[in-house]
């Protein structure tokens, strides 16, 4: 399903995959957050995989969006796991982060499944 610049796909029984598109506008996150959370609750999801494969750079604004989404998801008991973070994005993020992010990270869905 498409919600204002993100594509949400159900994968497995409890998991959803969020793929941001180029149309994603994070300047007004309030409505977008509500729509995503509504969808997650409707689908009874427990985990949300956020695909960062297309994000070569994550700037503070985009990071703030990820943090907001993560905190909101935690409020409805959904774990958010960022996958496919690019080396360039990780490199950039690590230079300005002062604390660990509130979201989890994994190489990809498969590696997470192997761990669990």
């Amino acid at each position: 399903m498409n919600i204002g610049g993100v594509h949400l796909t159900r994968i497995g029984s409890d998991d959803m995959l969020l793929e941001p598109t180029r149309a994603l506008d994070i300047s007004d996150t309030g409505t977008l957050l509500e729509s995503i959370l509504e969808c997650l609750q409707r689908e009874k999801s427990l985990r949300l995989y956020y695909d960062l494969a297309e994000m070569a750079v994550i700037d503070p604004v985009y990071f703030a969006w990820l943090e907001n989404l993560s905190r909101a998801c935690r409020a409805i008991n959904v774990r958010i796991i960022c996958i496919h973070m690019q080396p360039t994005a990780a490199f950039g993020l690590a230079t300005f982060l002062h604390a660990a992010p509130s979201f989890e990270t994994a190489l990809d869905m498969q590696s997470l499944r192997e761990e669990s």
């Binding site: 960022c82 996958i83 973070m85 080396p87 994005a89 990780a90 490199f91 993020l93 690590a94 230079t95 982060l97 660990a100 992010p101 990270t105 994994a106 190489l107 990809d108 590696s111 997470l112």
Partner: peptide, 11 residues
């Protein structure tokens, strides 16, 4: 910083 970057990559 290096540890954080590794963790961000999911490792």
């Amino acid at each position: 910083q290096m540890v954080r970057a590794i963790q961000l990559m999911g490792a």
